[in-house]
């Protein structure tokens, strides 16, 4: 049942629904995630990302619907599911009183791992905690705390990794480092991560699931989603001196021209016309200092999909 298209399905969700009082947090969603994929859960705050993750980890029971993780039904064999997932909750809660090593040993002992000590050492090394591992968790900076959270989620080498906003609140360097760790560990695992940073999805994920108001509004590969928006192409052009706009307008394929700075234009085109553009501009005695093709980002797709009124 869990096999389809010769791909092993690692996470499967059928009609999963969660209602808090009057409010529908997650509205009967369905999706499948193949083993080894890195999937981004995208959505505005309060869209139901965290609630879905909490149901997948067995923290919250769904109001209705079923889900399987790593081949186990969450309702029927929660312990097997919990043994096979690594979970980093939102805001990365930690025991600030404990030492880094103590905490990781505690996590290792829950999973009854053999060679706990050496496994903890290995994790400290791999997530880059070596310079700080003798401190109490409360004394660590946010970036290092995040590494402790990741180490905690990864210590038992889980098949499925669920990360709720793993990079929120970090500085750009730390975000880069944490992404490297996720990418490194994600090579042979199924990873679900939630975020509202689009670049993160582009940098890390194979697949995106966009959730808005409890429903899935898009579920596709990153490239496919980008193609979706590519009925228009933007080209940024910086010239050495000002140009008669009609020269640009006469090139076939140009729909619109916006002046966005000194001798800088943004052309909205139907197709990639950079080559023609180059020669036309050169013929007019002008020089192109900079020309750039701007892909429409996931950001805009996200905005489009999540601000649409849901029926």
């Amino acid at each position: 049942m869990l096999f389809s298209r010769n791909i092993i399905v690692s996470v499967k969700v059928i009609n999963l629904k969660k209602v808090f009082g009057e409010q529908i947090a997650v509205n009967a969603i369905n999706f499948e995630i193949a083993e080894g994929q890195i999937v981004g859960f995208l959505g505005p705050n309060g869209a139901g990302k965290s609630t879905t993750m909490k149901m997948l980890t067995g923290f919250l029971p769904p109001t209705s619907g079923e889900s399987w993780v790593a081949g186990f039904n969450i309702d029927k064999s929660p312990m097997d599911v919990k043994r096979n997932i690594g979970y980093l909750p939102e805001h990365n809660p930690l025991y600030t009183d404990l030492y880094v090593k103590e905490y990781l040993l505690f996590c290792a002992s829950i999973f009854k791992l053999d060679k706990k000590e050496s496994r903890v050492k290995e994790m400290i090394d791999r997530v880059g905690l070596t310079p700080e591992y003798k401190k109490k968790i409360g004394q660590l900076s946010k970036g290092y705390r995040q590494r402790v959270g990741l180490a905690q989620a990864l210590i038992h080498d889980p098949k499925v990794l669920i990360l709720d906003e793993p990079t929120s609140g970090l500085d750009p360097n730390q975000i880069g480092e944490i992404r490297t760790v996720i990418k490194e560990f994600g090579q042979n695992k199924t990873v679900i991560l939630s975020t509202h940073i689009m670049q993160e999805v582009q940098a890390l994920c194979d697949k995106v699931i966009i959730i808005n108001k409890g429903s899935i509004v898009a579920n596709d590969n990153v490239e496919n989603l980008q193609h979706l928006a590519q009925n228009k192409i933007l080209i940024r052009l910086e010239l050495s001196k000002s140009i008669n706009e009609s020269i640009l307008r006469n090139i076939s394929g140009v729909n619109n021209i916006t002046i966005i700075g000194k001798n800088t234009y943004e052309l909205e085109c139907t197709n990639d016309i950079r080559e023609t553009l180059f020669f036309s501009v050169a013929q007019s005695g002008n020089a192109i200092l900079n020309m750039q093709l701007e892909q429409q980002s996931l950001e805009e797709i996200f905005k489009k999909l999540t601000t649409k009124k849901t029926l």
Partner: peptide, 14 residues
């Protein structure tokens, strides 16, 4: 308050 209960409960502990 700290949210660590979520960690405890999502570990394989009853």
């Amino acid at each position: 308050k700290a949210g660590t209960l979520e960690i405890l409960i999502t570990k394989p502990l009853t």
